[in-house]
Design a protein around this nucleic acid. Structure first.
Lengths: 222, 222
DNA sequence: CTGGCAAATATTGTCGACAATCTTTCGCGA
DNA sequence: TCGCGAAAGATTGTCGACAATATTTGCCAG
């Protein structure tokens, strides 16, 4: 699995949260599906208490939408919503890059270089746009972790990134811009090594703006 | 109350959520206090079910920190944490201003002008730094609402702004920069009227950076 | 008097049950 | 046949109870 797993799994509620989260992100539970408490409780052999906790946590990850007295449904991501998310990514991740330029450690830089090398390998061998998506997410994940801003890390990695992952899984067949992305990642690493906050911020901003424009073109085509 | 109240209050859980949220934000429940489920349940004459739901929601607003098998405690905001929040505000609200320059309605502009006038009145009469804080928050709140980005609105107004309110209540006695802030608000309104996205973004960014620097000076003094 | 261990107490995690509400199904009339 | 309304069914909201864990109290040894 691509995501570092923080969950302690020591309580039933947090365990079922990760289970459902993965199922939703990977598409095993399809968008729009109703999360029926009695049904899921039977399925996973637990009571409704921990389930309700899980559903509320999924709600804070924006993976489900909850309506009082009606229950929870898996979110249906349409393109305009994805655009909204990318605007937020642009703002937050460019900030993360700036902070990372200031705070990243030697170890953090090495991890980024390793991820970049991995991605280049995948590109060369399988030309694989599919696998590339995971490595790309890991790269951004690592930049955010290097920002040192705990609140920012939590916002992006715990609350927003599962949504992005979900979108990636859904649209993994569509054309992406793997090659350009690699160059931009390389530029970012260089800026981080130079400790150039403004440059790192701008590179990340443009990187995400391009990704967003890529998506906006899909809307026009449809 | 300064905040528009979205809560439907139709379920016990959401009702107790707003009650506790207000109590925490206003300082009636002090930072560091443990939110004991049995105690609160007796106090508000409800069972632990809705309470647990409320606590989880407060957790997603970052107002309480939850540790498995230990319970929830009201967050203790130290200055470094507030700095972190202001970095996030800088990123998100400058983006909100840019989007607002594109999307704000005539009605939205009028609301902003009204809030500005209110603030000027308060400044003139009571010279009141205290009341000013509320009007300032309302101003930012209105700009965010005008961005049109639902996800951004939710992130800022539902998840992050209660934290900021809490900090404001705690530090309401400390010197703030009311006068300068008013000028910057005025500049922002002008930029929004011109539909100048870049200018609006920059004004908001500098406005929040200055506020952050104001706080950073407090750290140095202590 | 202090420190640490053990019993007692309180709190959290989980469960099953019941009432209120929503959804679906079925039947009736136009 | 179609649409409306009522009954039946299912689901959510809330509650109280019990087990497992954490915290506090109190005792004893040093």
């Amino acid at each position: 699995m691509a995501t570092p797993e923080h969950s302690l799994e020591d309580t039933l509620g947090s365990h079922i949260t990760t289970t459902l989260r993965n199922a939703i992100v990977c598409g095993d539970i399809k968008p729009g599906t109703k999360l029926s408490e009695p049904k899921l409780a039977r399925e996973y052999h637990i009571s409704r208490g921990p389930l309700r906790e899980a559903i509320r946590r999924l709600e804070s990850m924006k993976l489900v939408k909850y309506v009082p007295r009606e229950g929870a449904r898996v979110i249906t991501l349409d393109l305009p919503q994805v655009i909204e998310i990318y605007h937020i990514r642009e703002a937050l991740e460019s900030k993360a890059a700036a902070l990372a330029a200031h705070n990243i450690s030697e170890d953090g830089l090495n991890k980024l270089k390793h991820l970049l090398a991995l991605a280049e390998q995948h590109m060369a061998t399988s030309g694989g746009a599919y696998i590339q998506a995971d490595v790309d997410i890991d790269f951004h994940y690592q930049v955010i972790q290097s920002s040192g801003n705990q609140m920012l890390i939590h916002l992006l990695c715990e609350e927003l990134y599962y949504l992005i992952r979900m979108y990636r899984y859904q649209s993994s067949l569509q054309p992406n811009r793997s090659h350009n992305a690699l160059i931009e990642h390389q530029q970012l690493i260089m800026a981080l090594e130079q400790r150039d906050e403004q440059l790192a911020e701008m590179i990340m901003r443009k990187h995400i703006v391009r990704a967003r424009q890529n998506i906006e073109q899909q809307i026009l085509k449809s």
